[in-house]
Design a protein around this nucleic acid. Structure first.
Length: 641
DNA sequence: CGGTTTTGACCAGCGC
DNA sequence: GCGCTGGTCAAAACCG
């Protein structure tokens, strides 16, 4: 077929690396929070000698379940024998010293030595031990990183120079360093003449000052690394909390089912009593916030909404009650199937729902409701010459069809990262502009994901949930679809398109548009720009930045995070509005490099998920006061009940 | 040889 | 009931 070149590859094989044209890179190579295999630390020789000490030590280090071990900074090489858990007050410096101690310790074992490196360490050992002593004497910042400086290493010529020369250079420096330590006089005693001491002291001072500067830089670098790790850890915490909320939600769902049904009835009763549409909408917004079981509430609202639009807002209470019961029953089934917040998309393959859900066949209304609840989709439009956007997942093509109205074929992919994963996606080029690639995701992964894929998984589940939540905002949730658009992208409304048309409600993230960048772009933008300017170096920071921005934004928009989320955040209020910056910057960046489409889309949708999931989402009146302008393609109707 | 892609056949939903 | 369309299946081909 003519489409072979266009759709012949999964995201893994060709497009997985947005920064390289090389084929078949491992997925992890472009992941945001890629946890490296036990990495060769920056100081390779040094760490080799340590890691060969005992396998038990190595295992102990790398089996640390803490997310911090996932990051490249070598923070886990601690010596079980030497390390005293007295830290927390010296931060990065402490890590350095731990490494020092470990190394000194291990190299005392002859069988652990590597010959070519042993000369180096054997010489360095003497100095390290001095350094440790100095460290305890208060001069740690000067001494610690010295052994790691590659520049020094070259001057010392550890591999080829004579041991004596090496000692001369090395020892002299550290003796002086030690000499500055008022607490360790025993180290210095070379018997020099008093006349030469002054000149030598001046030289030493100069050297020490230079050394101080260098060490400061080194410390700053290490601090940055530590900050990087901490930020990544925070981002992961956000994600973990999100996952944790889903479990809590499952426990609460049962209790909320009845409440939801009651609320639904009250809602409809209020409409029947002639409440103004604005009041109704406002109440619906509140209901959205008070409905942790959003998915369940979605269904109710959807059906109610359809009734409203079809001019059946005056539905009899009997029908409403029956519909509510059906929704509740359906929700119960979802819960029984173990679907949490992440689960609605994993409800099953959309095409399979009618096939494999005969339980609803007992009622026509039930089948209609089921059609209503067909899985929401998340569509990403992006300019890309590549056959697929990179999303971190592994896909297998299982079909290709010519779709009506589009000369470009539509390719069907399913996730192959785990057997039975329900996630599918469709890839098709836009008929009007074939440089635009439209990728539509549906479903939710049922298996662990690499971080990048996790971001996209968050896209599908969160955006779908948010779509349903928006439409559920009540009987006429679809009458006010702007709410959802504002909620999704309050500052870049033209990037979000919400299509609730049957049969599949879809959120479209149109990343081909370039929203007007009228707002100042503070730090977040700068960071993102930096990300795109140096993607190979800084890519891991991008999701972190976006996560921070999005997370921060969620705290100040009408969407409120749960208390836990709030407590865990350290973001300052001044970061309010950074979402807009992020989105604006992201758009600009996408225009420059479409390979980041998935990244941005995932980040945006991650925001959606982070804002909503707490199940404490409270849509106050702020939302209804914000501007309109969201590009709502449709809010027509779901399949009616 | 195992995984992936291709591609025609098949099925279900929907409108007429 | 029939045709259209979207979506999936599965055997064959392909590929590394």
């Amino acid at each position: 077929m003519a489409t072979k070149a266009g759709f012949s590859s999964s995201g893994l094989s060709i497009d997985s690396d947005p920064f390289s044209s090389s084929s078949s890179p491992p997925i992890q190579h472009h992941l945001f929070f890629h946890p490296p295999p036990p990495p060769p630390p920056p100081h390779i020789h040094y760490m080799e000698s340590t890691t060969t000490a005992t396998s038990a030590q190595s295992k102990a280090s790398w089996s640390n379940p803490s997310p911090t071990i996932q990051f490249p900074l070598n923070l886990n090489y601690t010596s079980p024998d030497e390390h005293q858990p007295q830290d927390d007050d010296h931060g990065d410096i402490k890590f350095i010293h731990d490494d020092l101690r470990l190394s000194s310790d291990n190299e005392d074992h002859p069988h652990n030595r590597v010959i070519n490196e042993m000369d180096f360490f054997a010489v360095a050992d003497h100095n390290k031990k001095k350094l440790i002593m100095n460290e305890e004497g208060g001069s740690s910042k000067l001494a610690a990183p010295t052994d790691f400086d590659p520049q020094n290493a070259t001057t010392k010529d550890p591999l080829h120079g004579s041991t004596q020369d090496f000692n001369n250079v090395y020892t002299g420096l550290h003796l002086l360093t030690a000499n500055t330590s008022s607490t360790d006089q025993s180290v210095v005693d070379d018997g020099s003449s008093p006349a030469s001491d002054d000149a030598r002291a001046k030289n030493e001072i100069v050297m020490l000052q230079a050394e101080i500067e260098r060490m400061n830089k080194e410390n700053q670098r290490l601090k940055d690394m530590l900050s990087h790790v901490s930020n990544n850890y925070s981002a992961m915490q956000v994600h973990l909390m999100k996952l944790g909320d889903s479990q809590k939600k499952d426990a609460r769902d049962q209790q909320q089912l009845q409440m939801i049904a009651q609320e639904h009835q009250k809602e409809d009763q209020q409409q029947m009593l002639g409440g103004s549409p604005q009041l109704v909408v406002q109440k619906q917004l509140m209901d959205l916030g008070l409905a942790p079981a959003s998915d369940i509430h979605d269904q109710q609202s959807l059906s109610s909404s359809e009734n409203h639009e079809d001019g059946r807002s005056n539905s009899s209470p009997t029908n409403l009650e029956a519909a509510s019961k059906l929704q509740v029953e359906e929700a119960r089934e979802q819960i029984r199937m173990g679907m949490g917040r992440e689960g609605e998309a994993a409800h099953g393959l959309p095409n399979k729902v009618p096939k494999f859900n005969p339980s609803k066949s007992n009622a026509d209304q039930a089948s209609s409701t089921e059609a209503t609840m067909r899985k929401a989709r998340v569509s990403v439009r992006a300019r890309s010459e590549a056959p697929m956007i990179t999303d971190g997942c592994q896909w297998r093509k299982y079909g290709q069809k010519m779709a009506k109205g589009n000369p470009c074929p539509r390719a069907y992919y399913r996730c192959t990262m785990a057997a039975g994963c329900p996630v599918r996606k469709q890839v098709q080029r836009c008929a009007e502009d074939r440089t635009i690639l439209v990728t539509t995701y549906e479903g939710n992964h049922n298996h662990p994901l690499p971080p990048a894929a996790m971001a996209m998984a968050s896209t599908t589940s969160s955006a779908a949930r948010m779509l349903l939540s928006g439409s559920m905002s009540s009987a006429d949730g679809l009458m006010n679809p702007n709410f959802l658009a504002r909620t999704l992208l309050p500052c870049s409304s033209n990037m979000a398109t919400i299509s609730a048309s049957a049969p599949f409600p879809t959120v479209t993230l149109d990343l081909t548009l370039n929203p007007n960048a009228t707002q100042p772009l503070p730090n977040t933008l700068t960071q993102i720009q930096s990300q795109f300017q140096n993607p190979s170096q800084n890519l891991p920071l991008l999701p972190q930045i976006l996560t921070q921005a999005l997370y921060s934004h969620s705290k100040f928009s009408g969407l409120h995070m749960s208390q836990n989320d709030m407590d865990s955040s350290s973001l300052a209020p001044k970061q309010q509005g950074s979402l807009a910056d992020s989105l604006t910057a992201a758009s600009a960046a996408i225009a420059a490099d479409p390979n980041f489409t998935a990244v941005i889309a995932a980040a945006i949708s991650s925001f959606i998920g982070n804002s909503h999931p707490s199940n404490n989402v409270t849509n106050n009146s702020t939302n209804s006061n914000t501007d309109s302008g969201a590009n709502i393609v449709n809010s027509s109707s779901f399949p009616e009940n």
